[in-house]
Design a protein around this nucleic acid. Structure first.
Lengths: 195, 195, 195, 195
DNA sequence: CATGAATGAGAATTCATTCAT
DNA sequence: CATGAATGAATTCTCATTCAT
């Protein structure tokens, strides 16, 4: 047993679910279809997940964890805050652009949840939000961002702005390049409408 | 299309649905519960709406129409682009802060829909997005915003940023004032992180 | 609406359930089979019964109520306690002998229940037990039974004795006449082993 | 058939099942729970029992065998029929009163079976019924009981009467002493209502 | 003999929708 | 127009049983 504590079937089911959710949407994805896609029996799902909803949240947790890992891997202590934020935005757009099923699940399926589930999802997003916050703090500290920045608010503004761009691109049918939006978005983040 | 075409029961059902959706979430709201809340028989619902989903989209269309009306009423040709955007942001936050059921439905329930429905919802949001776009264009035109602004992208950034702030406030349990976030948000929109 | 408060379908479902339970046993009787037997849709069952188990208890309550009615109809204030008890025993045996599905359900199916349900069933049997008790009291009062009779205990002994005879007859495959056992049973009730 | 044929795990499983059945009831007792209680793997159960139902019947056979052994041990050739019957009734009540899990299983759980199983159980009860019958025959033979006794019927009456008293005591929550009922029961058995 | 992960058949229940009144 | 009783399709989850190790 290596550092990854979960058995192979756990991941097989998640990957199956990712594909099925992306194609049919959460509510239209029967557990039996996920099982078939994962190559396991229906009952096996319940050895690894307490209920159908758990597949959704686990999927999100795992995938978002991977994303945060990629963000961390792409960042560097020596980067300026501005460079770090550029990197985050580029990774955010390019990762979802290059993994359409993941994009569907994060932007569409995972929002199909009630308040309770949204709170759980909020927890999973937290590390990413915190990552953004830390970049903001660093920028404020080294003087590259303004000193009166409300970091708690601005981290939401940044996340929400990027998130909406992704969703809009997805719903539009991916008719244009998502990652190509990064420079203009970053320019807006840095200088706003007037600068 | 005038607003007076629809009979009273149409609106009674929508208001009932708003309350029920806000309390239980879309997927947990039975049609019969909406009917009871609206004071009509179950079958009556189907005289006004083709299916349950139609209630959701109609609700959204109506409510968002009201919001856009309020935006339009709050704006004035003589305002500067900056003033207009300030107004939009303040209305966006205060309207949802003062109408919690509406906030639940727009931020949580309406997202509980698959891709098909999301496209429809996108259409309903369009007028608001366009409204923002027009303000941006005006600002670019009169020189108060930068000339190289990518208005198609920035309108999404603005909408997404505001939207995320509202959702976050809602999920957090409305522990703070939403409308109090407006000045700092606008400051960010105008000057970005560096200005 | 006459004195019987329940709609026809309520009884149709109970009669269907009686037949299906008798043939397959409670645990092997699917709700859908009961529905088909009753000539209603599956969902209709749930308009009249909260859950499958409710059909079983309601069936028991109704049928035992009918039996108690028959006991009461068969009894007469002017009867001696001995005559009343004879009557009770004869009715007990003949009613079940002449209604085999009912006998199956009361003697076999209804026992297939856990402690919780058994308590509920106990409540339904109570009126019958009380009826026996009243006869005993009367007999003690008028001197035809011994004065030191522990009526609370003896009512159980009588019920249990008759009940076992019925069950045994049923399990044996009804190879002999059940009602023919009544005289000897009554003789035992009256005079015991020694008299 | 000696009693030492079965390996330890056979009995470990039965004892585990006794505890689990007593706490949760037969239908709510998962095989895996019995396995855990017995300290064996799920699959091991199937090395000793063909199916879940077999655990129930085996349990009953074993436990009833023990009871019959105790009856036999408590009886004595030199006893009168009356004394023997007294003894049987006292043992019947006291054994179950002093072994609550056993009482639950015999009075409640074992009844949760369909006709087929009930017949098997009937076979297991047979030795006890025969034991009672033999006492009756002896009594008739030595003149202490009436000569016209229908022993086939009366053995059922006696068993059913005692059985009902036990079940009633159990369902009531054991609020009173079960064994204290023996004298009055025996008095009834001997002299009936009138004597 | 023993294990326990994997299986997959099986059934109760819900609820959007219809339609006879 | 309005009703609400009736419908029945649809799906999650459980758990007895198996079998490769």
């Amino acid at each position: 047993m290596t550092s990854s504590k979960k058995p192979d079937k756990y991941y097989a089911i998640l990957e199956g679910a990712l594909r099925v959710f992306a194609e049919h949407g959460y509510h239209r994805s029967q557990v039996s279809k996920i099982a078939k896609e994962a190559g396991v029996a229906d009952g096996t799902i319940y050895l690894y997940f307490k209920r159908k909803e758990d597949i959704l949240t686990s999927l999100f947790r795992e995938k978002l964890g991977e994303l945060v890992d990629k963000f961390n891997a792409g960042l560097d202590e020596k980067m300026t805050a501005r460079e770090a934020l550029q990197k985050v935005c580029c990774i955010h757009f390019s990762e979802l652009e290059n993994n359409l099923p993941l994009a569907y699940v994060t932007q569409i399926e995972l929002r199909q949840s009630d308040l309770e589930l949204r709170k759980e999802i909020g927890l999973a997003v937290k590390p990413y939000i915190v990552l953004i916050e830390n970049i903001l703090k660093k920028g404020v500290h080294d003087g590259s961002f303004r000193s009166n920045l409300d970091v708690k608010l601005v981290r939401l503004l940044l996340f929400g702005a990027m998130d909406e761009v992704v969703t809009s691109w997805l719903i539009s049918g991916q008719k244009y390049s998502l990652s190509a939006q990064a420079p203009a978005a970053i320019e807006f983040f840095m200088n706003g409408l007037t600068g």
